[in-house]
């Protein structure tokens, strides 16, 4: 009797521990993943971890290996080296189980053209394990989310590229996946649709869906990603949230100054101590880089005094952190030189 009670307690403890471990384990984990085509190495020792609910923006120049990383993640490429796990399960060994958790939008989404939107989604949903009884309501829901309810009975071949992309996103969300992998989801979309898709990603994130997406449009990544990875030449150049990337790089702060009356002499400002670079901006303004953010207050004060002495009238004086574009270029340039 005592032994049975003890066994039961052990079982419960193990069960609880397993639950805690599962929650603590990274949801997606790349551990030294490499991939080569013959002698050409596309990915070298990619290691990164994502927790549940992370929105990971994956950026890098053309040919850096973003799509290869994504194809390895979704199991389209299986002959990589290293270890890749999703929710503790190994890809590709347990890919059938992993695929139940996953939705995927490829870079160039393509459907069999004779299908209608509804037929496409019904097939994809059924193959993902959505119950027949639920499929109708799920289709209605995802088409509503991507704003394509009116196109339900249209043939795929009649849709514009942007709308095909939206149907692609709809099929990826159809079975409420825990991990959504999107390869360039915003390319080819008009500004309104891009905004809409970004809102969808933010909304999914509230529901703890983990999103892994690649993009060339860095401002979009900046808008939605909670974690950013910069890839260059098959290697991860930087990893973290925007603030961490700034800190890692030691990037100087930037002052944006706009004049209502411009009598400034940029050379004088550029020669000031603590200033690394000055550029003029259109229509009348300056963009001043400060070498060390700790000197920001003191340098700002000196700049304002100097400009006023030069007879300038200042309309706006805004300190700003560098954009992701700037950080990206610095990381990529540094990676290229390495």
């Amino acid at each position: 009797m005592t032994e049975t009670t003890s066994d039961s307690a052990n079982f419960k403890a193990r069960y609880l521990l397993r639950g805690i471990m599962t929650r603590c384990e990274p949801f997606v984990k790349f551990d030294n993943v490499s991939k080569s085509y013959g002698n050409f190495t596309v990915l070298t020792d990619i290691s990164l971890e994502l927790g549940r609910g992370d929105v990971f923006g994956y950026i890098g120049p053309n040919g850096a290996g973003k799509t290869t990383t994504i194809k390895s993640l979704v199991g389209l490429i299986t002959d990589f080296s290293g270890r890749l796990t999703i929710n503790g399960m190994d890809m590709p060994d347990q890919k059938d189980r992993i695929h139940r958790l996953m939705g995927y939008l490829p870079q160039k989404v393509s459907f069999q053209e004779w299908r209608t939107v509804e037929h496409t989604l019904a097939t994809m949903g059924r193959l993902s394990g959505v119950d027949v009884a639920e499929i109708e309501s799920r289709i209605e829901h995802v088409l509503g989310v991507v704003g394509m309810s009116d196109s339900r009975h249209r043939k795929v071949k009649e849709l514009s590229g942007g709308n095909v992309q939206k149907v692609g996103l709809a099929q990826a969300m159809l079975h409420s996946p825990q991990l959504l992998v999107l390869d360039e989801p915003l390319s080819g979309l008009d500004p309104a649709s891009r905004y809409q898709v970004k809102e969808i990603i933010k909304e999914l994130n509230k529901g703890e869906t983990t999103v892994f997406f690649s993009s060339h449009i860095l401002s979009d990544v900046q808008d939605v990603a909670t974690k950013i990875g910069i890839l260059g030449w098959g290697r991860i150049l930087a990893l973290g949230n925007l603030h961490e990337l700034e800190e890692e790089f030691g990037t100087p702060r930037v002052l944006n100054i706009e004049f209502s009356e411009d009598n400034s002499d940029p050379d004088v400002i550029a020669a000031m101590e603590g200033v690394t670079d000055v550029t003029t901006t259109v229509p009348t303004g300056l963009r001043v880089r400060i070498s060390d953010e700790r000197d920001m207050d003191e340098v700002s004060d000196r700049i304002v005094r100097t400009l006023l002495n030069q007879g300038c009238r200042i309309r706006k004086f805004t300190p700003s952190t560098p954009s992701l574009d700037e950080l990206y270029m610095r990381y990529v340039n540094r990676g290229g030189q390495a």
Partner: peptide, 16 residues
């Protein structure tokens, strides 16, 4: 055709 257009990608990432 379906290989070229990458139609199969959406089938192959499903548990089939």
């Amino acid at each position: 055709n379906e290989k070229e257009k990458r139609v199969y990608d959406l089938f192959l990432i499903r548990p089939i």
